[in-house]
Structures are given as C-alpha cells and as structure tokens.
C-alpha cells in the first residue's frame, strides 16, 4: 500500500534537504537592519501589481472608444473594482519609490563595485522597466493625462537624433495618436514589460545568489556578530512576510483613503491648461522645460548612459584620481538635484 506522499515522492524527487539547500541562502548579519531589506520590497510589490493587474485586465477594454468607460465601470460598477484599481495605482507609486530607494542604498554603500557591476546594470534595466510600466499604465485610462502624456512623450522621442521619427511612429503606431495606439500601450504594459521585468528580476536574484550578498560591517556592532550569518529561512523570510503585510495594510489604507480618481475623458481637440505626469517623471518633465528638444534628449540620454555604466566610471575614478570616495559626493549632488527638480516641478503650475 503506497501512501499519497510516497506516490508524490517517487515522481517528484524533492526532499527536505534539497529544499533547505535551495532556500537557505546564508544572509549576512547586516540584513537584520530594515533598510537593507529594500530589495525585497519592489519584488513583493511587483507580485502585487501582477495580481491586481491581471484582475483589472478582466474588465479593461483597450480601445479608444471603450477604455475610459471600462475603467469607469471598474471604478464605479464592479464590486471592489475601485479598491483593486486603487491598490494597483498606489502599488505602482510605491514600487517606483522602493526601486529608487533600493538603488540609492546600493549606490551609497558602494555595493555595485566589482564583481557586481553586471547586477547594477541589470538593476538599471529594472528601473527603466518600472518607469516604462508606470508610463504605459496611466496611458491606459484614456483620460486627458493619458492622451496628452502619450502625445507629449511621442513628440519628445521624436527629438532623438537620427531615429526620432521612427521612435515616434513605433510608439504611436502612426504619426499621431490613433486607434492602434492604445492596444500598443496595453500589450507593452500587460505583457512585454512585465515579462521583461520578471526575467530581469530572476536574473538579478540569480546573480545575487551566485555572488552572495555584499557583506558590510558596522563599527558599533559587537565583534562576534560581525562576519556572522543567519538563515534566509525562516528568519529573513519572516522579515519579508512582515514587510509584505505592512505593505498590504499601507496599500489598503491608501486605496481607501485616497482612492484612484478619474480625470476627464481624453479629448483630442483640447489640451488641458495644466498637464503633469506622475511624480516620478517630474524630473524629466522639468528637464525638458529647461532645455529644448534635442539638447534635452541628448543630455538625458547621457545621464542615463552614465548611470548605467557607473560601476566602471567609479572604478576609473578610484584608480586614476586621488578621490576614492568621489562617488558618494557625486551621488549626493545628483540626488539633491533630482529632489530639487522634482520639488520645483511640483510647486509650479507650468
């Protein structure tokens, strides 16, 4: 007589030891500090976004004639639709914030240095993916902001030398916003970008597992705790569970107290007086206002390029100059500039 467990065991060669081996990444002691657990936060939020996003896609209709009405219907008619839409919207905001915070932590602790340059670049791709998800996400509502945001973005892309026109046509599926534009954004938002993001996340974690987590020491720690490790499971796993639950509570509260509203329906004939993207694009938006057309595109491209290859730039600075910690100062200045531009954009109407 074969037990059901035995039946499964025979066919799936899983044992407790193997599981232990797979999950028991030894976690350095510094991860007991909360702010080192920021990497898991966007990953968790990504799962939330996938779940709520799939649910929203059950009712969403990606065509200019029906998109707005379907979002309205989700928000007003469908049971808990307003809540799931609110969670998805706030989840996006928190995810962008978490990615940025995680990146800043990595940057200021120098965790991107050799041999982790490649993972930094994967992380940069993750950041760009997240931002693009945000942009394509609010383009789907087909409210005024969606329409004009997409139009403005396409025209910005057109400023790119050589390939600008092509980029724009690719983005809009034509020279102007048309019937094929919205399905394009929808496929990007609901299929291509999430798949890319998921792949990159796997790669990101795989590389961490291969290289081990950067180990940090702190001066105020007792000697025996330095260099010590603890198990991912269950200790760090519990920490992640707590973070996950806290995030869910936060998201529920935000979605209920500040529910996702709906702007006016897109009107191709009237550009709104005041038009602003989501807060995480304020920097780029202000930059575009400061420098015109191609200059803005090229400078932004250069900045992103530099960020992308920063581990190598940093290595060069450390090798060739007398300022080994220059990256901290450059990072601080860049962070202040970003915060400054964001606040500037937030505080003015135009």
């Amino acid at each position: 007589m074969q037990t059901p467990i035995g039946f499964v065991r025979e066919r799936l060669p899983i044992s407790g030891d193997r599981l232990r081996e797979l999950t028991n990444e030894p976690v350095p002691h510094h991860l007991k500090r909360w702010w080192f657990a920021l990497g898991g936060t966007p990953a968790y939020l990504f799962v939330v976004q996938i779940v709520t996003g799939i649910l929203l896609a059950f009712y969403y209709q990606p065509a200019p004639g029906t998109a707005y009405e379907s979002v309205r219907s989700i928000t007003e008619d469908v049971a808990f639709g307003w809540f799931l839409r609110g969670v998805h919207r706030w989840g996006a905001t928190l995810m962008v914030a978490a990615v940025i915070l995680h990146q800043m932590r990595v940057f200021f602790t120098g965790a991107y240095r050799k041999p982790r340059e490649i993972n930094w670049m994967v992380g940069m791709c993750l950041l760009l993916c997240t931002l693009m998800l945000g942009f394509t996400g609010y383009s789907l509502v087909y409210e005024q902001l969606s329409f004009w945001g997409a139009t403005v973005a396409a025209n910005v892309a057109e400023g790119t030398p050589l390939i600008g026109g092509m980029l724009k046509r690719f983005l809009l599926a034509g020279d102007t916003y048309n019937d094929h534009t919205l399905p394009r954004f929808f496929i990007l938002h609901a299929a291509l970008l999430p798949m890319a993001l998921a792949g990159l996340v796997v790669l990101h974690i795989l590389i961490i597992r291969l290289q081990g987590v950067t180990e940090l020491e702190f001066e105020n720690e007792p000697e025996e705790e330095k260099q010590s490790h603890f198990n991912f499971f269950p200790d760090h796993f519990y920490t992640e569970l707590m973070i996950g639950l806290l995030l869910m509570i936060l998201l529920s509260a935000l979605a209920t107290i500040f529910p996702a509203a709906m702007g006016p329906r897109a009107d191709p004939l009237t550009t709104p007086e005041i038009i602003k993207p989501e807060w995480y694009f304020y920097v780029a938006f202000r930059w575009l206002k400061l420098f015109s057309g191609t200059a803005a595109i090229l400078s932004m491209g250069f900045i992103v390029f530099t960020m992308f290859f920063w581990p190598f730039v940093d290595a060069w600075i450390r090798r060739r100059t007398r300022f080994p910690e220059a990256s901290v100062w450059i990072g601080a200045i860049a962070a202040l500039a970003i915060i400054g531009l964001t606040l500037w954009e937030a505080s003015v109407a135009h």
Binding site: E25, P26, F230, N231
Partner: peptide, 12 residues
C-alpha cells in the same frame, strides 16, 4: 550552494 549549511546558528 555548498555553503548553504555553513551557519544555521540563528535558527538552531
């Protein structure tokens, strides 16, 4: 992965 069991002090 060989190091996986290296240190289980916290749990143990």
């Amino acid at each position: 992965m060989a190091e996986a069991h290296r240190n289980e002090t916290a749990a143990d």
